[in-house]
Design a binder for these strands. Structure first.
Lengths: 212, 212
DNA sequence: CTTGGATTTCAGAAATTACTGAAAGTTCAG
DNA sequence: CTGAACTTTCAGTAATTTCTGAAATCCAAG
């Protein structure tokens, strides 16, 4: 069954985009098709619709499953497996973020940490390690934030996003009324860690010598 | 001049990572090398150090420049061009986010909008368009947020990130004391737009029919 | 068990992407 | 101008990735 022009255009564009993001075209197209489909589709129907070989679709679906972007279900009276995407679109964002973290970010942090444990053998090494530490701390900060924010329910998340940069007004409010900050969120130890050094990186550039 | 083990390991890992992110290995390695280098490097030195051809390095540098991830400078008494990465690590994040947006997200939003303008020719089209609208609104929300947040200075940004999910406590506070919300940030029109539909996506799944 | 539809695996073909060396282009001191 | 030093372009080649069809495997029904 041929695709309507609207759906075809979307599928093609999505496939194209995928290839800029380390996902191959086939996989992107399969996902796009499932995303707009009104019902779960069996692999052979996907293959026929998109003009790929059955085995290629099988591979693609396997990859999408490993990213938790599609789910498998059985329809009554049909022995074939049918695939669909989660209804909640935020689940896509969460799944992508989590898997990226697990597969790419965490191993990178491990490498960085390992390299920071090594004894430097030269001045160049020392400088390099300072840069690696900066990168490590930046990534860790971003990841902690994203892990944390992903626990919010959709409602809070949307409210937060819509607030955008205006959230700073809230921050200032909090800073001006320190009593409020101590309740549920309060940790009493002085909050001077790597992150403060990160923040200072543009203000003055030469105070980052506190890490070896 | 051969690389120290620490730097070499970093360069190799970074090159590997690049290939998961739509950046080729060579480009990743060049960037990594510049990132940890203590001084701007000329192209021929990069080529020799990494074992690539001179022309390959030239291509790679051109690409990195187009992403605004390296900058070119001339050193006194040397006719060659030297390359380095910005000192402020946040600038990397900003540059990456902006370029990705410009190159990939914006065109995608345009495609989505175009497809949403098309008259649906079937029930399947109608459903597909509803899904496209959801995706469009989600992306737009995320992009507006990121554009907005990137205008913050490093200090505010780090504070915000460190706050993580606890920012919700502040939101609730604001909601409970509406007087405070109206100052600088206030917009008086009722804030009911596409975003609210997005937020509701998990609570009830069938109220998103308000968009054609 | 056996059968047959459904799925996966895998070796090789096809397509894409990355890389090189030679040649052309640019810049600037003399 | 000239030519030396440096950079870019580009056509061809190498390497990698994607895709396919045939064969193997799986699995539920009989």
């Amino acid at each position: 069954m041929p695709l309507s022009p609207i759906i075809e255009a979307f599928v093609l564009h999505f496939g194209e985009m995928g290839s800029h993001w380390g996902i191959n075209r086939t996989v992107g197209q399969i996902y796009a098709l499932l995303y707009v489909s009104d019902r779960p589709l069996p692999a052979d129907e996907i293959a026929e619709t998109l003009g790929f070989s059955r085995s290629n679709v099988s591979m693609g679906l396997k990859e999408l499953q490993s990213w938790r972007l599609v789910r498998l279900q059985h329809l009554p009276g049909d022995r074939r497996e049918h695939f669909s995407t989660p209804d909640d679109i935020w689940q896509i964002v969460r799944a992508l973020a989590e898997e990226r973290r697990r597969r790419e970010i965490d191993p990178t942090l491990t490498v960085l940490r390992d390299l920071l444990m090594e004894a430097p053998r030269s001045e160049a090494d020392r400088l390099a390690q300072r840069r690696l530490a900066e990168m490590h701390d930046l990534i860790e900060l971003l990841m902690r934030w994203s892990e944390d924010v992903q626990k919010l329910d959709n409602k809070d998340l949307v409210q937060l996003l819509r607030l955008g940069g205006r959230v700073v007004a809230l921050l200032e409010l909090k800073n001006r009324l320190p009593l409020l900050g101590r309740g549920k969120a309060g940790r009493s130890r002085p909050e001077t860690t790597e992150a403060d050094a990160l923040a200072g990186a543009d203000a003055d550039d030469n105070n980052d010598t506190d890490r070896e």
